[in-house]
């Protein structure tokens, strides 16, 4: 079994309204160094074998929406 971690993020050109709210909250807590926050999601897959092309297809077909999101993935131990 192989563990694949997929990281999905909103494209930088899109306003991340949840991220903006969290940034404001951190600033309110006096973490003044925070300039921006972006929130993504991590999807952890357990697969019987790793095939880069097939994981890419999973991302393109379902896990990420190419209109609004970017993704990366890596095999983790």
């Amino acid at each position: 079994m192989v563990t694949v971690r997929v990281n999905v993020t909103l494209k930088p050109s899109l306003l991340d309204s949840a991220g903006r709210t969290v940034a404001k909250s951190l600033q309110d807590l006096s973490f003044d160094e925070v300039e921006d926050v972006r929130i993504g999601k991590t999807i952890t897959l357990q697969v019987s074998e790793f095939d880069e092309g097939r994981v890419k297809a999973m991302c393109d077909k379902l896990l990420a929406n190419p209109v609004i999101e970017n993704y990366t993935f890596e095999v983790v131990d």
Binding site: L10, S17, N65, V67
Partner: peptide
């Protein structure tokens, strides 16, 4: 989501 229409819908600007 199916691409039958263009664009996408994301979270409202004020959450």
């Amino acid at each position: 989501e199916t691409g039958i229409l263009p664009g996408a819908l994301v979270q409202n600007i004020d959450q």
